[in-house]
């Protein structure tokens, strides 16, 4: 469709619009359902975008960092830590390796054991934080070398629990996208039903129009235009409400919890604006199909 056609379609031919009687009931239902579907679509979109971000972040951060744990008798701890750091500094593919200080280790344990933890009195292993370079080091080779020279060292490159977390975030993103597809499908089904109801209610109008020489396009347009505009308006309202709801969610803080991260970021706020256009397109297609089907039964 050219720009002119689209404008003509939106502005409408006042004469052509009048040949179909104004409808009350289905119009309100279509408006309401489009608004509700758009509202839901905003949340599904927020969910899939947030879990997508989460999956990417976890994937990246965790892939880069690894932890070396040194469990050794207190008297050998300092020596083994030094030895391990030396090996790490020689290993290609490691950007940095740093032993955590006693304060940092205490801070890590604090959520579980409370603030006044006498770290010295506990057999807490020494932690070394490894940041990988690009390309990264060879984990198997490093393990082999460490086991020979630093018997108390255990390398944890987080793959064991990184994979399921990233999987979970990716599944969540998939669920969000599937929800959006279902919402689109349900909207199409609803508009099809409403359009069929409107076409059936106006059977006589359609027959008279056909008999006086109206083309299918002319007859269908009156219906298509109405349903498209209703879906556009309803979805517009639904998206505004949904985006307001997302905006009112508590903002992400240091806790960085997943739920508080639910929402849109930056240009992501523009994405939900596609929903009304998508809704209008779905209504357009569904009404066209319904009208064509109906008209083809008429001579």
């Amino acid at each position: 469709m050219s720009r002119g056609t689209i404008r003509a379609f939106l502005v409408g031919d006042a004469q052509a619009d009048r040949v179909v009687p104004p409808s009350g009931f289905t119009a309100h239902l279509t408006l309401f359902v489009s608004a509700a579907m758009a509202f839901l679509a905003v949340f599904a979109l927020a969910l899939s975008m947030a879990s997508g971000r989460l999956a990417d972040r976890w994937g990246e951060e965790l892939a880069l960092s690894a932890t070396l744990r040194i469990s050794a008798p207190p008297d050998q701890r300092a020596a083994q830590t030094r030895a391990a750091l030396e090996i790490l500094n020689q290993t290609p593919g490691i950007a940095s390796a740093r032993a955590l200080t006693a304060e940092e280790q205490a801070a890590l344990l604090e959520p579980w054991f409370g603030p006044d933890l006498p770290l010295e009195s506990l057999p807490v292993p020494q932690l070394i934080e490894i940041i990988a370079d690009d390309p990264a080091y060879d984990a198997a080779g490093l393990r082999l070398r460490l086991s020979g020279e630093v018997p108390g060292a255990i390398l944890d490159d987080h793959t064991r629990w990184r994979a399921p977390l990233v999987d979970a975030a990716n599944s969540l993103r998939r669920l969000g996208l599937i929800s959006i597809l279902l919402i689109v499908g349900a909207t199409a089904a609803m508009v099809t039903l409403a359009a069929h109801a409107a076409l059936a209610a106006n059977a006589q109008v359609i027959e008279v129009l056909r008999l006086v020489g109206a083309k299918d396009r002319y007859i269908a347009q009156a219906f298509v235009r109405r349903f498209t505009l209703r879906a556009l308006l309803g979805a517009g309202v639904g998206v505004v409400l949904g985006m307001a709801g997302v905006a009112l969610l508590p903002s992400a803080d240091d806790a960085g919890g997943f739920l508080t991260g639910l929402g849109f970021q930056g240009a992501g706020w523009l994405v939900p604006l596609v929903i009304p256009i998508l809704g209008a397109a779905v209504a357009f297609g569904a009404t066209w199909a319904a009208a064509r089907h109906r008209l083809s039964e008429l001579s």
């Binding site: 009687p21 104004p22 109008v205 027959e207 008279v208 020489g213 109206a214 008209l295």
Partner: peptide, 28 residues
């Protein structure tokens, strides 16, 4: 179907059971 519509514009028909658009005034 469009050609049938165009043909009907060249044939004026008075139906035995004449039907109209009941929501529009007679002149329309």
């Amino acid at each position: 179907r469009d050609q049938v519509a165009l043909t009907r514009r060249r044939i004026g028909v008075v139906h035995q059971d004449c039907q109209f658009l009941d929501h529009l005034p007679l002149a329309d």
